[in-house]
């Protein structure tokens, strides 16, 4: 008797569970056709594009929306028109995981983080490679700038190091594209303390550069403050830091007050699932996908 009541309770629980799922299925509006399409092995272009984006404030997102035109500028006003239905994640790894697991997904990551688990598409016919970023042929790339009023002592020696072949080797090792062809570094061994401040996109590579420089010149003390590009430029103009970092081109008023040098370039790769047949997108098409105008892969694949 006791056993049979137990079984009854289990069945009731199971019934409620299944009916809960069935209820969910019934009320979901967007098509159940996706499940039937999945069985065919080939990539199905009728699929709705799953757009994966980064969170607001991310340096990668800032650069991507600006370079692709998703960010609309109207005088003083700026409006990020990223598709409101885009899945938002807060790390490069999460973008890769999402694109890897969903054959209809598209996302973007820093070129340095690209691996075989996803496929990068050509932009305007140009492959996303370090060489094409360096030459400027690959459109979606951004410079890592440092800016300063004047360089002396440790600051001058440190910038020499960054632009030397030793410094640029650090840049390449971190997955970015080197920009300078200067010879090997010879330190003048100055003593002193400087402050470097600015973009959170530049600061990981700057941290490695500082480490490498301190190994050569132990008399130097370099403080690294991570804020954002605009704060970094403002600090350099006010003189509260010796070197400012920006992960974008300098604005006019910043360029007037400061001298700047590109220390590295970073490409942003547009990535899709390995099973996706798309290999080439124009900048226009990328913009239209990320603003939600094109919602199906058939819109960009013939």
């Amino acid at each position: 008797m006791k056993k049979s009541s137990g079984i009854l309770a289990i069945t009731t629980a199971a019934f409620i569970l299944t009916s809960a799922f069935a209820g969910c299925g019934g009320s979901s509006t967007s098509g159940s056709s996706a499940s039937s399409d999945r069985q065919s092995g080939a990539f199905d272009t009728a699929k709705t594009i799953s757009v994966i984006t980064r969170e607001s404030g991310s340096g990668t997102r800032d650069a991507f929306v600006e370079l692709t035109g998703v960010l609309e500028k109207n005088g003083e006003n700026e409006s990020d028109n990223t598709y409101s239905g885009a899945v938002t994640v807060n790390s490069t790894e999460a973008v890769i995981t999402n694109v890897k697991g969903n054959d209809a997904a598209v996302g973007y990551i820093s070129l340095g983080s690209l691996n075989d688990s996803v496929k990068s598409v050509n932009v305007d016919g140009v492959e996303a490679t370090a060489d094409n970023v360096k030459s400027g042929d690959y459109k979606i790339s951004r410079p890592f700038n440092i800016a300063y009023k004047e360089l002396k002592g440790v600051a001058e020696d440190f910038v020499d190091f960054i632009l030397s072949s030793d410094g640029q080797a650090v840049v390449t090792k971190e997955g970015y594209v080197s920009t300078s062809e200067n010879p090997a570094f010879k330190s003048k061994m100055p003593n002193g303390k400087i402050t470097v401040s600015g973009s959170s996109s530049v600061s990981p590579v700057m941290e490695k550069l500082v480490e490498a420089y301190k190994a050569i010149n132990s008399g130097a003390e370099i403080e690294l403050l991570t804020t954002d590009s605009s704060s970094g430029m403002a600090a350099a103009m006010e003189g509260t830091c010796d070197i400012g970092m920006a992960s974008r081109e300098l604005k006019d008023e910043e360029a007037d007050a400061l001298k700047s040098t590109v220390i590295a370039k970073d490409g942003i790769a547009v990535i899709v699932n390995n099973s996706n047949t798309v290999s080439d997108l124009t900048l226009e098409q990328i913009k239209s996908i990320f603003t939600g105008e094109t919602t199906e892969w058939s819109g960009v694949i013939e």
């Binding site: 969910c24 299925g25 979901s28 967007s30 098509g31 159940s32 056709s33 996706a34 499940s35 999945r38 709705t48 799953s50 899945v87 999402n98 697991g101 969903n102 997904a105």
Partner: peptide
Amino acid sequence: VPFVRDSFGGDGS
């Protein structure tokens, strides 16, 4: 997430 994507459509997330 894959279960929801395959059964009900959408992004899954």
